[in-house]
Structure formats: C-alpha cells, structure tokens
C-alpha cells in the first residue's frame, strides 16, 4: 500500500536510480571509445604538427611544416582533387544505379523474389572487401574473364588493359558500395504512401513526372544517407584502389598508407590523414545538413 502513494521525493529517487543504472551501462562503452577512438585521433592530431629530420625521425619541435607541404605541393593538391572526384563519381553512379534496384526491391511481386534480391544486396556487405575486390581482378586482368570473353567473340585481338586505372577503381567501388545506397533508398521508397503517387496521377502527372516531382523528393532522406556512407567509404578506402588501381594512383588514402608503412614519415602521414578526415567530415556534415533541412521542412 505504501508503494502506491509514494512521496515526490521517493519518486525522484526511483528516477535517479534508473538514470544511475543507465549511466553505469553506458560507461564501459564510452571509456572504450574514449581510449581507442578519441585518444588516437588526438595523438594523430598532435603528431601531425611534429617535425622530422632527414632520416624521418620525429623531432621534439612543433610546426605547420607538414600541412604546408600538403597544401603547397601540386602533387598533393592534385591528389586531393582526384580523391574527391573519384569519391563523388562513385557516389553519383551508386545513387543513379540504386534507384532502379530499390524500385525492384520495393515492388518485388512476392516474398521469394524479395528475399533473393535482399540476399544479392546484403551478401556483399558480409563478404570481406578483399574478396569483392579480388573478383574484379579475376574479371579485369590481362588474362581475366572479360578479356577472354571478348577475345573469344573476336571483338578484340589483343587483351585490353582494364586494370590499373581509375576507371577500374570506380567500377570496383560502385559494385562494393552499391548496397549501401540501395538499402536506405529502398527504405525511403517503401515508406511513401502509395496514395501520394495516386494523387499525383489524378492531377494529371504521368509516371515519369510523378517520379521526378513526388517519388524523388520524398526519397531524398534515403538518398542522402546512402550518399553519405558511399562518399565517406569511397574517399577513405585504400584496399580497393591498391588492388585494382595500383600503387601509383594519386589517391590520398593510398598515399597515406604508403607514407606510413613504407616511407615511414609519420608526421606527414598524420597531417595527410587529418586533411582527409576534415575533407570528408566537412562534406559529410554538409550532406547531413541538407538532409536535416529537408526533413525539417517536411516534418517540422
């Protein structure tokens, strides 16, 4: 009986206990992320200001030298530019291909077809990126499948050089990252009330116009979240470009990998990493802002 008419003090004590418990639950995760996500990035940030001697040993002095090198050399500026446009191209192609794929997923005539499409979409996400990229080597190599088929069909007489260029990198990127674009767009599409499309048609808009004026704007949330993931993955990976593009492609992640593991200029590698991080961060934040603006407009 006493429990039913608790005093306000007892009630806030109960709330305090619940909150305390929630904080206790949250703490281990926070400590882990603090120690192994926040601290390493602080360390990286600090190292990026260190100087090196001619043997790449870190000196105890701090300066902006590493950043000056990144932002004044044509080589690195070209690299930043290439990294961005490869990532943007990958993102745009992924989004464009994702729409018909998402449409099929949403309109699949039955459960079996839908599950099959889901398996095709999700299984690459669960397979190591090395293996997905390896498939493209098998396909595009000099003695790879594409060349073999083209030769057999007598369309070409000599094998084409399909690997070791940025085109190969983009193709592999698109195939590796497409599911990240399809899934959120399909979710957005599935949430559209079919009556909105009917309303559009009853007002005289054909299918194509209904897509441009109703379906596309309403899938912007899915499109933006897909674009954010694809862009940040495409701007930050080095495995795929290394394996299908080769070591010499002017891509920032590739250069960072080599700078650190081969040249061992740690501060320069750190400065390039911070640059990449900020570039990706700014662009992703921009896309996030568009996303929130749009959602704010629709839902308040």
């Amino acid at each position: 009986m006493a429990r039913t008419n608790r005093t306000p003090g007892a009630e806030s004590a109960g709330k305090y206990r619940r909150n305390l418990f929630s904080w206790v639950m949250l703490t281990p995760g926070l400590i882990f992320l603090g120690a192994f996500l926040a601290v390493p990035f602080l360390l990286l940030f600090v190292i990026s200001f260190r100087d090196v001697d001619n043997w790449m040993n870190m000196l105890p002095t701090y300066s902006l030298n590493q950043y000056l090198e990144v932002f004044t050399s044509r080589f690195y500026l070209h690299m930043i530019w290439t990294t961005l446009w490869v990532a943007v191209a990958t993102t745009v192609i992924c989004i464009a291909l994702a729409y018909p794929a998402a449409y099929l997923l949403v309109r699949a005539p039955n459960r079996t077809v839908r599950t099959a499409l889901y398996v095709i979409l999700v299984s690459p996400l669960l397979t190591s990126v090395v293996i997905r990229t390896f498939a493209w080597i098998v396909l595009l190599a000099q003695n790879g499948l594409v060349n073999e088929v083209l030769m057999k069909l007598a369309l070409i007489s000599e094998p084409l050089r399909l690997l070791w260029n940025l085109g190969a990198v983009i193709i592999a990127y698109v195939q590796v990252m497409l599911p990240f674009a399809v899934l959120p767009i399909a979710t957005s599409m599935g949430e559209i009330d079919p009556r909105l499309r009917q309303a559009s048609m009853s007002l005289g808009a054909g299918r194509l116009r209904t897509f441009w004026k109703v379906t596309l704007p309403l899938t912007i949330p899915g499109m933006m979240s897909g674009a954010i993931i694809v862009f940040s993955l495409a701007a930050g990976s080095y495995i795929t470009p290394l394996l299908v593009g080769g070591r010499l492609q002017p891509l920032l992640p590739l250069a960072i990998y080599q700078q650190v593991l081969q040249v061992a200029n740690l501060p320069l590698g750190a400065a390039m990493s911070i640059t990449l991080l900020i570039l990706v961060g700014v662009l992703v934040a921009g896309m996030g802002l568009i996303l929130r603006r749009w959602e704010g407009r629709m839902h308040g």
Binding site: F36, L44, I228, G236, A270, S273
Partner: peptide, 27 residues
C-alpha cells in the same frame, strides 16, 4: 552528438583509423 560519435567508426576513413591506432598501439 554522443550517438553520432558512437556511430562514427562507420564513416571515418578507414586508413585514418588504421594509422591513428598504429600510433597509439606503438606508444
């Protein structure tokens, strides 16, 4: 913001995360 921080490893360039951990683990 905290939630975004917790989800951020999905979006941080993996090469950057790799070298940040390399430095930390070396230390």
């Amino acid at each position: 913001a905290l939630l975004s921080f917790m989800l951020s490893p999905l979006m941080i360039p993996q090469v950057v995360m790799g070298i940040a951990l390399l430095y930390l683990f070396t230390a």
